[in-house]
Nucleic acid binder design. Structure first.
Length: 798
RNA sequence: GGGCAAGUGGUGGAAUGGCAUACACGAUGGACUUAAAAUCCAUUGGUCGCAAGAUCGUGAGGGUUCGACUCCCUCCUUGCCCACCA
């Protein structure tokens, strides 16, 4: 009988479903294991990235389950978002209909992969039973002052007609449609994630099982830096311009000041000056450009003189005040002190506009002359031209100048954080309505939590143009004020979808809970997520937001833990011909067609065997055949089972159990598969008995679950393979009586001997010295030194 | 510009201080077959050699060590993330 995955696989998928093989229930007598892969956006079709992500999670999950853990392995859909709106417009349907269809299609494909999900826990963020709790969480945040409204200039995508968080702007374009982003003033809802910045930074220390690069990226994102806010007085006035710097050691070299075009003082300073008309025009032109466009490196650093001067408080020098496009209002105080000799941006600007320069830090061993400088000197060195601080090294000077300025009241030591508040408003239809009402009498009024959910109207008109579709639905917008009952208007913005995905892992613990976002008892048992698996592209935003929400829930008393994800694996991308698979490059391999041809087991095997999980994986059409061939090889063993296992094969089996177990545990699936292949190669030479074969099948079952179940059942086993126990290896059986010892002379391998593993060091030395080849290579020279590494090698140095 | 990875046969990769290239793909040869496919077996880093064997070899150069793909320094290349963050 041949191996026919197309008949075997649906059969076992049905069996698992009918027998609720992967249903997880709380059982405090058993050790739990919560294995989670990042839930997908339901595009309707899975791609190889999904296959890789979910196969890794599935193998680990099945391995943990066979090892005795009470495993929870849920799956759901991150179903709100803009593509549904675009698709609905394109296909003349409605986002919810389109999304539900996509979810069904995608679920079918996921099931065809044979993934061991507890589908009873499925959640879709577009269900009102889910987004009701988004609204509840939002109201709690509003109550605690963590959700607030701010009128501000925001990134605006003209194509999507929606605001974007800075984090969502990629290379000056919208992260989804790549249209160039412009600036627009809107009243926006923000979440005050900055209230949690200390904890978000501090608690990174607790995440010892996260990849260090993700920790580094988060640290840099939150980025705490120490510096000094310096007070520059505008000459002949009482106006103060505060300026923040991390390089206070360069303060004596400040030769001008630069304000952002948006700086509130900019217009005031130019008033009545000869420079006013030119400066006015510059300000207007600069504000029109978005921050992202302005931040492009190739843009020339433009600026105008304001006609005003500032007094440098450390030496009372009057220095010119400029306005320039390279200074951004959002950072620091929106004004900088420029030190062209020691900052490259200032250097270029000063050269361009002929501004003065002065060296205040010079290298240890030589002089630094302004006229000879081709670029700013940004390294450390010795203070010069810095008054009483001359001669100090600049790091010491930094400390001393800072406290000296603070004592004199001309500066203030400050912490500066890079992390900013999180903009969650979207002028979109397909998202969670923000549960807020605007009343002429009462102002901003939260919807009563008893009246949640604020349902998304099913038939809002949207064309993709002209702002919020919800604003056009009268019966949605016009409601009585929850406080005074007078006619008022609902908020028509919806929430960014990152909100939805910031707590779904908690909802999985009790997806039907209807009095809180999640059940406290269930969450206490199942949380935190023992293993989280997903793409490196989520290393900052999604993980940071999820950490923020978790800390917020802790503060509400809903959970006890600080961090949601104990262990994190970031899988590498799937490439074809050295490039990321993408529709635009036309190099996409459709998983479904591979499953049709070779079966899900072969696809799973290939994707794990081709590379370790963390690194990029190169798709290879031929190697998938190799995976299929290997499964056939395992399949055929069933026809040639022998009665009695010989001791060498038995040893090979036990060694494989040891190696495969270790490798699964540490996500080294590629080498685990290699060991299984080696074992199969041995079996082809010597044969194996039924008992040994069954063990091999259990070892293989996390990777090729369908075939393993089929063979297990063909051999007459009553229990499904998912109910079996993980094989244990016997230490006695893998004990080696003899070991191979490498003999080196001066570090070069010259001989190889087989010795009893209990041999003493002295005997081994003598044996090595007496070896013919060793004698040949030592040429009777006396050994200067002999290094013996137990059970491995002898190195004779002559 | 900053940060983080990575660089090993024709290819994917293995080895984290101790026999470099496990396992697989591909290739070549053989067995089976009327034949092909499938399957099974063997060979497969370079150079020299009939062979035994020698010698070179993990991006480049240096260092530490009895011994380095592995640790350290300098450089090169590629990828990813971030970026006028003051």
């Amino acid at each position: 009988m041949d191996y026919t995955p197309n008949t075997i696989e649906p059969k076992w998928q049905k069996y698992w479903q009918d027998n609720a093989s992967f249903k997880a229930s709380m059982d405090s007598s058993r050790k739990k294991f919560y294995c989670l892969e990042m839930f997908p956006y339901p595009s309707g079709k899975i791609h190889m990235g999904h296959v890789r992500n979910y196969t890794i999670g599935d193998v680990y999950s099945r391995f943990k389950s066979l090892s005795g853990f009470n495993v929870m392995h849920p799956m759901g859909f991150d179903a709100f978002g803009q593509p549904a709106e675009n698709a609905a417009i394109k296909h003349n349907t409605k986002p919810d209909i389109w999304t539900r269809r996509c979810i069904d299609a995608m679920k079918e494909e996921l099931k065809k992969m044979g993934l061991s999900y507890d589908w009873d826990r499925e959640v879709s963020t577009c269900d009102s039973t889910y987004y009701k709790w988004n609204q509840w969480i939002f109201l709690k945040m509003f109550e605690k002052g963590l959700a607030y409204k701010k009128a501000s200039s925001v990134n605006w995508c003209p194509a999507c007609e929606t605001t974007l968080a800075n984090e969502e702007v990629i290379d000056g374009g919208c992260w989804r449609c790549h249209t160039e982003v412009i600036q627009k003033d809107l009243d926006q809802w923000y979440l005050k994630i900055t209230d949690y910045k200390e904890r978000l930074l501090e608690d990174l220390n607790k995440l010892s099982e996260w990849p260090s690069r993700v920790i580094t990226m988060q640290t840099n994102w939150i980025n705490k830096s120490k510096g000094v806010e310096i007070f520059f007085k505008v000459k002949d006035t009482d106006t103060i311009i505060p300026v923040f710097t991390t390089r206070v050691d360069t303060i004596f070299g400040a030769t001008y000041i630069v304000l952002a075009a948006e700086h509130p003082l900019a217009k005031e300073l130019i008033k009545g000056k000869a420079e006013e008309p030119k400066a006015q025009e510059f300000i207007k032109a600069t504000i029109a450009k978005s921050s992202v466009v302005r931040s492009k490196e190739d843009i020339k650093k433009e600026g105008v003189f304001t006609g005003s001067f500032a007094i440098n408080p450390v030496n009372n020098e009057a220095i010119p005040i400029w306005i320039a496009d390279y200074v951004l209002m959002e950072y620091g105080t929106g004004a900088i002190m420029a030190v062209p000799t020691h900052d490259q941006r200032d250097f270029l600007f000063a050269k361009e506009h002929n501004l003065p320069m002065r060296v205040v830090i010079k290298p240890q061993d030589k002089a630094l002359v302004v006229e000879d400088m081709q670029e700013a000197y940004t390294s450390g060195g010795v203070q010069v031209n810095s008054g009483e601080f001359d001669g100090l090294d600049n790091e010491t000077a930094k400390e001393k100048i800072a406290s000296w300025m603070e004592d004199k009241g001309i500066g203030k030591i400050q912490e500066h954080w890079r992390l900013r508040d999180w903009l969650i408003s979207r002028q979109r239809y397909w998202g969670t309505p923000i549960p807020i009402v605007y009343c002429d009498n009462c102002g901003i009024v939260p919807v009563e939590s008893d009246n949640l959910p604020v349902e998304l109207p099913k038939d809002a008109p949207f064309t993709g143009e002209g702002g919020s579709p919800l604003g056009k639905v009268a019966e949605f917008v016009n409601v009585p004020c929850p406080k005074c009952g007078e006619p008022s208007r609902r908020e028509t913005d919806t929430m960014a979808t990152f909100f939805d995905s910031s707590w779904y892992f908690l909802r999985f613990t009790s997806p039907l809970c209807n009095d809180l976002p999640f059940d406290k008892e269930q969450a206490k048992y199942w949380m935190g997520v023992d293993q989280y698996i997903g793409g490196i592209e989520h290393a900052i935003l999604h993980l940071l937001y999820s950490r923020f929400f978790t800390k917020f829930f802790k503060d509400l008393g809903l959970i006890e833990l600080d961090e949601p994800f104990k262990k994190l694996l970031t899988q590498g991308m799937v490439l074809k011909d050295g490039e990321v698979m993408s529709k635009s490059k036309g190099n996409v391999v459709d998983p479904d067609s591979v499953i049709k041809k070779y079966g899900a087991d072969s696809l799973r095997l290939f994707i794990l065997f081709a590379a370790p999980p963390e690194v990029e994986l190169e798709w290879d059409d031929r190697a998938i055949e190799g995976a299929f061939k290997f499964l056939n090889r395992v399949w055929r063993i069933k026809d040639n089972l022998i009665e009695k296992l010989d001791s060498n094969t038995e040893k090979a089996l036990h060694k494989a159990i040891q190696k495969v177990t270790q490798d699964y545990e540490s996500f080294k699936f590629n080498t685990a598969i290699a060991s299984l292949m080696e074992l199969v190669n041995v079996i082809y030479k010597t044969g194996i008995d039924k008992n040994g074969y069954l063990k091999l099948l259990v070892l293989l079952s996390p990777i090729a679950p369908h075939m393993s179940e089929e063979l297990n059942s063909l051999l007459g086993e009553k229990d499904a393979i998912t109910k079996k126990a993980w094989p244990q290896f016997d230490k006695e059986k893998i004990k080696e009586e003899t070991v191979n010892i490498v003999i080196q002379v001066n570090g070069k391998v010259r001989a190889n001997i087989e010795v009893d593993s209990s041999i003493t060091e002295e005997d081994l030395k003598q044996l090595a010295l007496g070896n013919d080849n060793v004698i040949k290579w030592t040429l009777n020279k006396p050994a200067k030194k002999i290094i013996v590494v137990k059970n491995k090698l002898v190195n004779i140095v002559v």
